[in-house]
Design a protein around this nucleic acid. Structure first.
Lengths: 112, 112
DNA sequence: CAGATAGTTTAGTTATAACTAAACTATTAT
DNA sequence: ATAATAGTTTAGTTATAACTAAACTATCTG
């Protein structure tokens, strides 16, 4: 339950609800945080058993484990398809998004 | 949604799910925190629209507003009646309960 | 009225969650 | 082998949520 606590993790869960996505795509969908931050949240969800992960070459694909959510799965789907809830969630996300917009670091092999 | 985030608030919500209870009874059910802490959480839930409150003489009665939870209401009920989920929630609550056990201050009108 | 009971509120503390920056591993391409 | 891409991890910071102690309001009781 408490893995569903943060709007950020809900956003992720929703992205991979009915499609598998690589971590990079998930990050691209939330450019207000660093890649590292997203990776940590993915780990959190994974450890809570709410995601499945699969590695393919350089990519790591994530997908929601709806079964693990039990009765919550249906509730979430209904909420997401409900206009009123859409507004509520949008507001919550918006609240969690204040401050400057960081970019992905230009990782170089050996840089000071 | 985010008002459901903490196991503490879930515990409260569950207590007043199908019965109205005065703040004092709710506090008595969670003696590991002060009365003030409970009052603040009640306020939180109230402001999120998840509780109804009614004052009668010295008591303030609280009750869950199931309608406000939409599809979540059913999901919560199902979870609570499910043995597996019971264990999960118990574990979460237990985790949030470490440290010393404070008591309600012996409030005296004018004490130093 | 004084004192007890029921609850809220404020101000300050503490615990925890979320995040950043940078180092790191692994894979692929040149 | 070098460099780029994809992702993770660590260590430290910052923001936020939860809590405590005490002051406070209000109602009831003698």
């Amino acid at each position: 339950m408490s893995a569903l606590a943060s709007p950020r993790r809900m956003e992720i869960l929703r992205l991979v609800w009915d499609q598998e996505l690589p971590a990079g795509d998930i990050h691209r969908a939330m450019p207000d945080v660093t890649f590292g931050a997203v990776s940590l949240q993915l780990k959190h969800l994974l450890e809570a058993g709410l995601l499945d992960a699969r590695t393919e070459s350089r990519n790591r694909f994530y997908r929601a484990r709806k079964k693990a959510l039990g009765p919550m799965a249906k509730a979430l789907e209904e909420m997401w398809s409900d206009a009123l809830w859409k507004l509520k969630l949008a507001a919550e996300l918006d609240e969690s998004r204040r401050g400057p917009r960081p970019q992905r670091r230009k990782t170089k092999g050996k840089q000071l």
